[in-house]
Design a protein around this nucleic acid. Structure first.
Length: 452
RNA sequence: GGACCCGUGGCGAAAUUGGUUAUCGUACCUCCCUGUCACGGAGGGGGCUGCCGGUUCGAGUCCGGUCGGGUCCGCCA
C-alpha cells in the first residue's frame, strides 16, 4: 500500500491507510493513547489501545483505518480534525533523542546560538518552515514572470577574480597555481554585462553573492539577489517599471494580506531624500504601526562619485560601470562631486532592497570614470582588460538591477533579521555554528595549496 | 577596528542594598487515568550560576580579564 499524506486522509474515510511522519505530541490516558502525527501537510490524530515506547519526534509508519470522529470530538484547530486514525500497526522508522529546545513555539525567545548550532532542529519550527516555503514560492513566481517576459536565467561563475573596487572579497587559493587566488563573486555584475554584449538581451539570475564584511541584522556574508540586466532600455524607467511590476505581482499573488502604500511606486531624488529624511533609504510608510503596509519607493539621481576619505580619492557611489548623467568628459573630470548618475535604489519600509542603473557602454566614458577614481590606465587595463575588450568588440546600451531578496523576505514575513528567512545563516562574525566553519584544514591540504 | 547589551538545571525565566540549602515554568524519568487534542493527577532526577583571577568574614550579585552570543558605528563598488 502506498503512503497517504495527512491532508489526504479526509478523502479516505472507512479505508485503511499508511501514514508516515513525526510524532508531534503524545497524550496517554491509561488504556487509550493519542498521537499527533505530523507531516508536511499537517497533523493527524492517531488512536491506539496498546502501550508503545514512543517519544516526541520519533518517526513512524502507521497502518490504520480512517474514521470520522463523533461530532463532539471534532477539533476545528487542526486540518484533519474531523477524522482520526485507528492504528492497527505502528513501525518506528527512526527514534529521536529529546530535542535540545522547544520547537512548538516561534522560537524568538531562545538564544540564537542554540538555534544556529542545531539549525536542523530549529527548522522543524512552523514559522521557519513557512518562511522557507514562501521564499521558494516567491522565487518560483519571479522566475515565471521573467520567463514570460522573455528573460533567460543564466548561471555565472562562483570561482572568479578579485577586483579592486567594492567590498572585501572572499578568496580561494588555487592548487594548480600556487600563490594565486580566485575570489568569490560580490555580484555577477561584470558577467551579466558581458552576456549582454554576447546578445542575451534579457538576462536574469537568482544569484548568490558573497562579501567578506561584518554582518548586521539585515546583512549576511552570503546572500541572494534577483539580478537582472537588459539591452536597449530607453531610460532607467524601463528597469524601474520592470522591477515594480515583479514586486506588485508577487505581493498581489502571494502576500494578499499586505497592501502597497502607493502604486506606481513613487520616486524621490537622492538629494531630496537626504534633505527631507536625512537618509537615502527613508521609511515612508503612512502608518508605521501597520504590519501589512509596504512602502516601496524609488530613490533616483544618485551621485556618480563619492569621496573616500580613507583612501583620499574618489570612488564610485554604486559601481564604476554606472552611466553618468553628464555627457561632457571634461566636466566629469573637473567636477566629479557634481556629477549625477542614471542610478536608483529601490527602498522598502526603510530597507534598501535593490540598486539599479544604466551602464556606460561607451569606452571613452568608461575610461574617464576609472580615471576620476584614480586608477592608472595600466592598472585599469590589467584588472578590466576583458571588460574594455568586450566593449571594443561592441556592446549595446544596457542597464539592470540587483535586488536583495533576503531583505525583501524579512520585511514581508515581518521578521527583524534576515537570519529568519535563510535556512542556514551565519552569526555576527560570519561563523557557521552548526558546521563550525570556518575551520582549520589539514597540513596536507595546506601543502597542496602552497600555503605552508 | 570601535561602542554597548547579555551569559543561572536541556530550554525560558527569578533570586531586596553582597548574606544560610539558588527558586519557578517547561522539558525529561516513574506511576495512575478509555476521549484527549498545550489532556489531567501524584512523585522523582537534574546546577561548581560560561571560564580564570581579584575584592570581601561571605560573590549568581561588585571589579578585571577571557570565551561565547546579540545590537549599533566603521565597513557593505
Amino acid at each position: 500500500m502506498k503512503r497517504t499524506l495527512n491532508i489526504d486522509t479526509l478523502k479516505k474515510i472507512g479505508e485503511d491507510v499508511i501514514l508516515k511522519g513525526w510524532v508531534n505530541s503524545i497524550r496517554t490516558h491509561g488504556k487509550i493513547t493519542f498521537i499527533d502525527l505530523r507531516d508536511e501537510t499537517g497533523i493527524t490524530q492517531i488512536v491506539l489501545k496498546e502501550k508503545l515506547d514512543l517519544k516526541p519526534e520519533y518517526i513512524l509508519e502507521i497502518l490504520g483505518e480512517v474514521k470520522e470522529r463523533p461530532d463532539n470530538m471534532k477539533n476545528a484547530e487542526i486540518i484533519t480534525g474531523s477524522i482520526e486514525i485507528k492504528a492497527k500497526n505502528i513501525k518506528v522508522l527512526s527514534k529521536a533523542k529529546t530535542m535540545p529546545f522547544p520547537i512548538d513555539n516561534d522560537g524568538y525567545e531562545i538564544n540564537e546560538k542554540h538555534r544556529l548550532e542545531y539549525r536542523y532542529i530549529d527548522l522543524k519550527r512552523e514559522r521557519l518552515k513557512k518562511n522557507l516555503q514562501k521564499r521558494f514560492e516567491t522565487i518560483f513566481l519571479m522566475r515565471k514572470i521573467l520567463k514570460e517576459k522573455g528573460f533567460t536565467e543564466i548561471e555565472t561563475p562562483i570561482l572568479t577574480k578579485s577586483t579592486p573596487e567594492g567590498a572585501r572579497d572572499f578568496v580561494v587559493p588555487s592548487r594548480n597555481f600556487k600563490g594565486l587566488f580566485y575570489a568569490l563573486p560580490q555580484s555577477p555584475q561584470q558577467y551579466k554585462q558581458l552576456l549582454i554584449s554576447a546578445g542575451f538581451e534579457k538576462y536574469f539570475q537568482i544569484a548568490r553573492c558573497l562579501r567578506d564584511e561584518d554582518p548586521r541584522g539585515d546583512r549576511q556574508p552570503e546572500f541572494t539577489q534577483l539580478d537582472l540586466e537588459m539591452a536597449f532600455p530607453e531610460s532607467e524607467k524601463d528597469i524601474m517599471d520592470l522591477i515594480e511590476e515583479i514586486y506588485i505581482k508577487v505581493v498581489k499573488e502571494l502576500f494578499k494580506e499586505k497592501h502597497i502604500t502607493e502604486i506606481p511606486f513613487p520616486k524621490m531624488t537622492y538629494k531630496e531624500a537626504l534633505q527631507k529624511y536625512g537618509t537615502d533609504k527613508p521609511d515612508l510608510r503612512k502608518n508605521k504601526e501597520d504590519k501589512n503596509e509596504l512602502a516601496f519607493w524609488f530613490i533616483t539621481d544618485f551621485p556618480m562619485f563619492e569621496w573616500k576619505e580613507e583612501y583620499k580619492k574618489w570612488g564610485a557611489m554604486h559601481h564604476p560601470f554606472t552611466l553618468p548623467q553628464e555627457k561632457n568628459i571634461e566636466e566629469i573630470k573637473k567636477n566629479p562631486k557634481n556629477i549625477l548618475a542614471h542610478q536608483f535604489d529601490l527602498v522598502l519600509n526603510g530597507f534598501e532592497i535593490g540598486g539599479g542603473s544604466l551602464r556606460t557602454h561607451d569606452v571613452l566614458m568608461l575610461k574617464t570614470c576609472f580615471e576620476v577614481m584614480n586608477h592608472s590606465e595600466k592598472e585599469t587595463k590589467e584588472q578590466f582588460k576583458h571588460y574594455f575588450d568586450a566593449f571594443e568588440y561592441g556592446i549595446p546600451p544596457h542597464g539592470g538591477i540587483a535586488s536583495g531578496l533576503d531583505r525583501f523576505f524579512a520585511v514581508v514575513f515581518n521578521e527583524n533579521s534576515i537570519r529568519e528567512v535563510i535556512a542556514f545563516p551565519k552569526t555576527g562574525d560570519n561563523k557557521d555554528l552548526m558546521l563550525k566553519a570556518p575551520d582549520k584544514i589539514s597540513k596536507e591540504q595546506l601543502k597542496e595549496l602552497g600555503l605552508k
